[in-house]
Amino acid sequence: MANLPTIRWGIITTGLISSWFVDDLVLDRPDAKVKHIIQSIGTSNLEKGRKFVEQHCPNQNPQIYDSYDQVYNDAEVDIVYIGTPHAYHCRDSMQAIAAGKNVLCEKAFAMNAKQAREVFEAAKKKNVYVAEAMWLRHRPLYRKLQELLHQDKVIGDVTRVFADFASEIDISSLPPTSRYRDLALGAGSLLDIGVYPLTWLAVADEKDMEMPRIVASQSHEEGIEVTTSAILQYSSGRMGIASSTTKTKGSPGRIFAVIHGTKGHIEVSGDTPSIPESFTVWARQTDPGSPEKALFDKEQYESKTYEFPKVGRGFVWEADNTALDVLEGRKESSIVPWAMTVHMMEIMDEIRRQGGTVYPGE
């Protein structure tokens, strides 16, 4: 670790997602590419901040501030990680950028595409690094899947992708101030978990980022979106089907995404779509002949399963890649570039428009 380049982080908020991120930053990893230092933490309560340090980074000695501005203005901070609720992402990113800080902001990056563009325009003017913290795209499993699909063409041309995320949340039992129930905080399944099925659909997109034709539907309870279903149709004929819900819980270890191609299909498995563990390639070896044989004759397929070990909570690759971007002077991520973030926000904007979900101020 002593010979590794060092990056110093400022952490905004002491909530759950920030705790997971910091847990991974301080992991002792033999394959680490960067030494991560927790330089400062911004919190609404100093005692809360001290408990956060004791639990999640006890071997470091970060400065604890009771305001975010103090983190942004800390000269020792190289990059700010923003883990606040969706509704504050734009505000917090803009304040960090105004102070000249590099930013890694949690997904969903903003409430809508307009906010995302505003943040990137501010970053461009200030000449600072900004990236969306979509950790799924950084995972070795996702990167390997992209390689097999686009370079090796293991299932031919992709024709259809299906992905689903189900995470049960009893909204009626939560206080009105909960981020899961407060529309002003971006409550609903789409921004919170629906972004993952859409990201699995995007694995078939080789960065041309065509805006698909979208047919979408949403249902609501107590004013909060609880189910989203969307069909994305591309000019090539490729189809994507994405769904998310807070009405039921997905089964652990299940297949949550299937990618179909002209020469086979791929099944992706794990406890949740945000934490994939393996995928199996089913490559067709012979001409299927009749439709009945194509459907039911497994002997014509050769299967290979790719398994990926768990490392911490799964943020380590995102953290290393982001740190190297900043240390090497880049202003946006090659893995999650600005255009990709805006493209995803535009898709979610259209889904919400059709589904009838509107956030305050829009």
Rank of each mutant, 00 (worst) to 15 (best):
P276Y: 01
D271I: 05
D287R: 15
W282K: 04
G289R: 01
A294W: 02
V258Y: 06
Y306R: 01
S303C: 04
T272P: 03
E277N: 02
R254P: 15
E292A: 13
S290R: 11
T262V: 12
H260Q: 10
G264T: 11
K304Q: 11
W282L: 12
D287Q: 13
E302P: 02
D297R: 15
S269P: 01
H265D: 01
D297Q: 14
W282A: 06
S269F: 01
D297Y: 10
E277D: 04
G270Y: 07
S303P: 00
F308E: 07
H260V: 12
P291V: 07
D287A: 15
P276N: 03
I259M: 03
S278P: 09
I275F: 04
F279E: 07
S290T: 09
F308Q: 09
H260E: 14
I266K: 09
E277V: 03
K304Y: 08
V268T: 03
K263R: 14
G270A: 10
A257N: 01
R254E: 05
F279D: 11
A283H: 12
Y306D: 13
G264I: 09
G289I: 00
H265C: 06
T280M: 02
R284L: 10
Q285I: 02
G289W: 03
F256K: 04
K263H: 10
T286A: 14
P291L: 05
H260D: 12
G270E: 07
G253V: 12
K263A: 10
P288F: 03
S290Y: 13
V258D: 06
G289F: 04
P276W: 00
A257M: 10
G261L: 08
G270N: 06
V268I: 15
A257S: 15
E307H: 08
E299D: 13
D271F: 01
P273T: 00
K293A: 14
P273A: 01
H265V: 00
V281T: 07
S274M: 10
F308Y: 13
E277A: 08
S303H: 14
V281R: 00
H260M: 12
F296P: 05
E277F: 07
Y301M: 05
G264L: 05
I259K: 00
Y301S: 06
A294R: 08
T272R: 14
S290I: 06
I259Q: 00
T305Q: 09
I275R: 13
S274F: 02
G253K: 14
G264N: 10
V281H: 03
E302Q: 13
T280C: 03
T305F: 07
I266W: 01
S278W: 11
T305D: 08
G253R: 15
D271V: 09
G264E: 09
A257I: 00
V268D: 10
R284K: 14
Q285G: 11
G261M: 15
V281Y: 03
T262P: 13
T305M: 04
E302Y: 14
A294D: 12
A294K: 11
G264K: 05
K293R: 11
E299W: 09
S290V: 02
T305R: 03
T280V: 15
T272K: 09
E299Q: 08
P288E: 07
Q300A: 11
D287M: 15
G270W: 07
S269D: 02
D297P: 02
S278G: 04
D271W: 00
G261V: 14
E307Y: 09
I255D: 14
D271K: 00
V268R: 04
K263E: 08
E302W: 12
G261F: 05
K298Q: 06
S269I: 02
E277K: 08
F256P: 00
A294H: 08
E277L: 03
G270T: 07
